[in-house]
Computed example of a mutant assay.
Amino acid sequence: MNHPVRTSEEGLRADRVSLGIGGRILLDGVTLVPRPGETIGLLGPNGSGKSTLLRLLAGVLGPSAGVVTLDGSPLNRVGRRAVARRVATVQQHAHTQTELTVRDVVALGRIPHRRSWSPMTPDDLAAVTRALERTGLTDRADQSWHTLSGGERQRAQIARALAQEPGELLLDEPTNHLDIQYQLDLLELVTGLPVTAVIALHDLNLAAMYCDRLVVLKDGGAVAEGTPSQVLTPALIEDVYGVPVEVTPGSDHPVVRFLRRGSAPPGRTGPDRPPRAPDLPAGAAQERPG
C-alpha cells in the first residue's frame, strides 16, 4: 500500500532505544519509525525484546538510552493522559475478576478522554458504539465478559482500544492461543483500521500476509528490517530461530515452510534416507483452540 510522506518528527517513533535491567540488556539500540497507516510486524524468538519494545513505545517503561517520541516530543514530556489518547495497547491476555459487560470493557477506552468520576458524555457513548460496531460485537454488548470465547475477548480488547480513538495501536502477540479462524479474523480487523499498528507476532506466515514491513529482533537487537519478501529468507530465519525452512515466493507474500530436523534437502531421498515427511506451515504447532 502507498503511504503519505511523513516528517522526521511525526507520529510515534523509537530512536536507538536501549533498556537494561539488573545487568541484563533487554533491548539494544533499536530504531523503529512507522509510516502513517502502516502495519509493522515485530518478529523474533521469546526473549528477543518484542514485548519490551512495545512497552517502551507505550510509555509503560522508559529507555535507559535513546528516546521514544510522539510528534517529536519525548513521551515523558507529553504526559501519560495525552499519550493514552493517541496510543492504545492490546496485550496477549486480559483478565478481570470484576463482573463486567462487553460494553463496560469497551467503555474503559474512554477513560483518557474523561475527567475523574465524570459521567459518559454523548461523544463517549458514540465512540463506544462505533467501536462495538467496527469489531462486530454490537449483539454482545450486554453480555458478560466472562462468557466470551478467547477470540471474542480479543475483539473486545481491540474495541476498547478503538474507543480511545488512537492514532497508533500496539498489539503484543494478539493471536496467541486462538484458533485459525480467530487469528485471521483478528488480523483482518486490525489491518483494516485507520491506525498505524505495531504487532508482535510469532507466526511468520501471518506476519507475511498482514504486515507491510517487518522488524526482526534477536537478543535485544534489530537484525533485519524491510518488507516480508526482503526479510523472510531461509538464512535469516535459521539464524534467528535456529530452524531450517523453505521460503516460496507468493503472488502477494512469501510462504514459509518449516522442515523437520535431519530431513533430506528437497529432491534428495534414498535407501539411507527416508522420504521427507510433509512440512508444517509456520506457526502450526502454536495453534490452540480460542
Rank of each mutant, 00 (worst) to 15 (best):
N2Y: 08
V5F: 07
E9T: 12
E9M: 00
G11R: 09
R13T: 02
R13M: 03
A14V: 03
D15Y: 05
R16D: 12
S18G: 15
G22D: 13
R24F: 09
L27E: 09
T31G: 12
P36L: 03
G41S: 14
L42Y: 13
L43T: 06
S51Y: 14
L56V: 08
L57S: 01
L57I: 01
V60D: 15
V60C: 14
A65S: 14
G66A: 10
V67L: 09
V68Y: 13
T69M: 01
T69I: 02
L70E: 05
G72S: 04
G72M: 02
G72E: 05
G72R: 00
S73A: 12
G79M: 10
R81K: 06
V83Y: 01
A84H: 12
R86Q: 08
T89C: 15
T89F: 15
H93W: 06
A94N: 01
A94M: 08
A94R: 02
T98L: 06
T98W: 02
T98Q: 04
V102I: 02
D104Q: 00
V106S: 03
V106Q: 00
L108E: 09
P119T: 13
M120N: 04
M120H: 07
T121M: 02
D123W: 10
R130M: 08
L132H: 14
L132I: 14
E133K: 15
R134F: 06
R134T: 14
L137V: 09
Q143H: 15
S144P: 10
L148W: 07
G151F: 08
A159M: 11
A161V: 09
Q164E: 04
E165C: 07
E165D: 14
P166Y: 02
L169Q: 12
P174Y: 08
P174Q: 10
T175R: 01
H177W: 08
Q181G: 13
Y182K: 05
L186G: 09
L186V: 15
G192K: 11
T196C: 00
V198S: 06
V198T: 02
D203T: 12
N205S: 07
L206S: 07
L206M: 13
A207I: 09
M209L: 14
Y210R: 01
D212Q: 06
R213L: 05
V215I: 09
V216Q: 03
V216S: 05
G221C: 04
E225R: 00
S229K: 05
Q230D: 14
Q230V: 07
V231L: 05
V231W: 03
L232Y: 11
L232W: 11
T233V: 03
A235V: 10
E238C: 08
V240K: 01
V240R: 05
V240C: 04
V240E: 06
V243R: 06
P244D: 07
V245K: 00
E246I: 15
V247D: 11
P249I: 00
P249T: 03
G250W: 06
G250C: 11
S251C: 00
D252W: 09
P254T: 12
V255N: 03
F258L: 15
S263M: 01
P265M: 01
T269Q: 14
G270P: 03
D272F: 05
R273V: 06
P275R: 13
P278E: 14
D279L: 09
L280D: 15
A282D: 08
A284K: 02
Q286Y: 01
Q286S: 07
